[in-house]
Design a protein around this nucleic acid. Structure first.
Lengths: 114, 114
DNA sequence: GTGATATATTCCCGTCAAGGAATATATAAC
DNA sequence: GTTATATATTCCTTGACGGGAATATATCAC
């Protein structure tokens, strides 16, 4: 998993753009208008997103229509799955571990359970 | 979905730490040793990860054992799913859309083929 | 060709974050 | 109390990044 992918999504305006594109492909001007971000900034953000393979562009006359690329989302999905699969196996051993910690007399009983 | 979550994962060292913790809870020193990152930097990164709810800490004697928090990974999972679910619906309409672009008689026939 | 529209790029600036070094805090042993 | 170990925090510097303004490029209409 590439840190750059998460970094691209870690900027608020870019995350907004990605979530906006979830509704369907849009031109630069439409994104700029919808999110009230100036056009040069939108182009810059789209460049970063494009560099991470999160979006791709389709030129249409004078417009450039950006859309999301499913591949990256599958990568993220697989990455997250690699964690959740392990927890299924490790959940009870973590519990055992935490309990073993608390088994020690703590002299203040302030163990927060959440 | 919080941009800060992705930002936390978007730093290479932090992503390394998260992936290392996938193998199980570790102390600061163990992380520092395993990744050859100086201890103060590890503590700082863990602070950011902790602030995003990606990790949590369990004090054990003089050690502080960090472990991953499943909740955030479920959030990311749900977020990614919200995209992939739409694609199942929209995949053919995107195709239709792209074709419709090229199908338009454009008065000069200069449609880029891609 | 000129002019208009849509988008990309460049330059500059301010801010923020990461890394290094030193230091502070916490816990344990004595 | 002192000392040692484990971790957190502070200060400083530097480099990267986002935003604004201006400009460049591309396409269309004429």
């Amino acid at each position: 998993m590439q840190a750059t992918t998460f970094a691209a999504l870690g900027e608020p305006s870019r995350l907004q753009i990605v979530e906006l594109l979830r509704t369907g492909p849009l031109s630069v001007g439409e994104i700029s208008d919808a999110l009230s971000i100036r056009q040069p900034q939108v182009s810059k953000h789209l460049r970063v997103l494009s560099g991470s393979g999160i979006v791709a562009v389709e030129p249409v006359a004078r417009h450039r229509i950006y859309h999301l690329e499913p591949e990256v989302f599958e990568q993220i999905n697989d990455w997250v799955d690699s964690f959740e699969r392990l927890w299924e196996v490790r959940l009870d051993s973590l519990d055992t571990y935490l309990n073993s910690i608390r088994a020690k007399p703590t002299e203040d009983g302030s163990e927060a359970d959440g």
